[in-house]
Design a protein around this nucleic acid. Sequence first.
DNA 1: TTACCTTGTGAGTCCGGTCTCAATCAGCTA
DNA 2: TAGCTGATTGAGACCGGACTCACAAGGTAA
Lengths: 365, 365
Amino acid sequence: MAPPPPRRRDVTVSDVAKHARVSKATAARALGDYGAVSDTVRDRVQAAAEALGYRPNELARSMNTGKSNTIGVIVGDIENPYFGLAMRGISDAAKEEGFDVILVNTSEDVDAEIDAVRVLLDKRVDGLIVAPASSGETGHLRDVYNSGRPLVLLDRRVDGLDVDVIEADMASVAFEATRHLVDVGHRRIGFISTLDVKGPYHDGLDLRVSSVADRLQGVLGAQQEAGIPDPGSLVRFADGSAGIRPVARELLALPDAPTAIIASDSLIALAVLGTLQELGLRVPDDVSFVMFDDFEWTTLTTPPLTVISQPIYDMGVAAGKTVIARVQSRAVPERRAFQATLVQRESVAPPRASAGGAIEALSAS
Amino acid sequence: MAPPPPRRRDVTVSDVAKHARVSKATAARALGDYGAVSDTVRDRVQAAAEALGYRPNELARSMNTGKSNTIGVIVGDIENPYFGLAMRGISDAAKEEGFDVILVNTSEDVDAEIDAVRVLLDKRVDGLIVAPASSGETGHLRDVYNSGRPLVLLDRRVDGLDVDVIEADMASVAFEATRHLVDVGHRRIGFISTLDVKGPYHDGLDLRVSSVADRLQGVLGAQQEAGIPDPGSLVRFADGSAGIRPVARELLALPDAPTAIIASDSLIALAVLGTLQELGLRVPDDVSFVMFDDFEWTTLTTPPLTVISQPIYDMGVAAGKTVIARVQSRAVPERRAFQATLVQRESVAPPRASAGGAIEALSAS
DNA sequence: TTACCTTGTGAGTCCGGTCTCAATCAGCTA
DNA sequence: TAGCTGATTGAGACCGGACTCACAAGGTAA
């Protein structure tokens, strides 16, 4: 590796001005494209800038315009394809409007999120898109709001915070998916999500992530409507993605194991399917399976999976357009409620006649 | 939506200084944690800052320190899990060192990349990580180098540019994977990648993306070594992800269709597998399949897929650590050559005895 | 007591732009 | 020819911090 070139002093407006033999103010006007400048002078200044290789210092510019043309995005996990795709949407929307995006990954850690908000605010981003890790801690989100900078929540609401939220209607599609399972005969339906709550699920538990709460509400609601007793008993939360497989195993080892499982996102689905595979359980013969999010690989498994599809990219675009519209005090785009749909493929079938659990079914076959 | 709160003027050091009845310089010292300040004054200033809700303006700070504590990352497509995972690594490394990350997505468009480099340089990022869309246009990368700011290339080299590169050794695993196919009897091996080149592949074609060129070199090399004539005839490049399926179809419809296909990344693999599925071709019975990148879903297909695994996350971390080390003029971390490995699962089998192409095999069954 | 440090503090400059304001100048009107 | 108008231009303040420098106060050594 060659020695790095000396970091030369950058060319500034003053340098350009000197070279073009005009005042700094005039050069700045010609370069910044504001105020009035005669054509001849403008040309001379631009030629000088070209010759010197002048590049504006956006930091300095931001400092006195108060606009950084940058929005901050705070998500739990960009490795999660959900956020990868949403990020793509945000990024595309931002580019179209001439904005840049600072991305911060919090690993779903509230403290990291609080920190991220502070840092981005200090960096003077013009607006923020956050998928909040918890609806419990919201002081930092209020700070954003109070700073006067627009905040848009993605995928998750926070109660009592009156800001734009981009989310899909999860409760009704979860209801629909669950009723589909009930309709084909399932009475023991498991639901697995990742969430940092301690202890088993019980009525009235504060879920802290609205998108999960909504999904669960739909799942439970459909079962209650069907007269299934205590559907909450087959709900499980894993703390972090490493915890999913153990939780899935535990659920499937139950004497009254579920005959169908709903996975709350694609990462969970992957872990659950992996566990099923390890246990030698077949989908849908032994266990029916439904998952949230529709990525291409879900059509390539055997069988293709029944999924709940959300317009993730579009939601990302909407989030981007919305913050930027707010930043520019323009009317926000109309469309902010997104529809999720149940895509029926082949991972749902009637449960085995056997009354036993999944593992039991296995030994019976 | 309630009306946004008025964007109040931010609290500055001067405000804090006034409130604590000290000079601006002293307040700045107490807050910025530099220079000498007596304990009593420091406490008074910090109390005042607390009371006023002072937050430093990082823009102003960056302006005269010349450091923004921000690195720029330019990738072709964050929707691609490869970059999602790498981004996660970069992001984690950055956070550890107190850096933020500005992410720009170029859609693999060179002009967008040139623009992105300019914008990020103007924003005064301290360093840049780029997965260059082309080794052809490199002027903008030279500009980074000349600006004196460190540049790290991820996944792809650029000839004649003496900067740090984080990449895995693709040529040798590609060779190994291909020889594996040859060993089980394949003599017609297809290779599909996305790349913006016009016309069919021919010897000496400038591939412009080193990671693809390396893979191809290994693929072709193994076949040449085995005495397979004209292996280049089954190489196909699609222009953008939309073009993969047509290309795959064309390849499979050939009278001398390949009996095995190698997909150059996971997005391509998805499209190829989808096409295979549509055509009713089974893996590995009708066509053997090997792909680059090892994501969890590749174990859930039927059959599980033979893949080439790279330590993507670690490479992201290395890229992050490397730029930051350069920014701080520290020694760069030792490890910069990464090993990719062939993970044999069940998508490779001996070709059918039939001499015909894949489609022909279909009708024969 | 005087000289010499050391530590703490304030005044003011600088970073690289934007922006206000006053001055200059050419063209026109009366 | 004096007066007015609009277009250009330059001087300098300002954004919010970091940092240089001069100076004052207190402590120590000779």
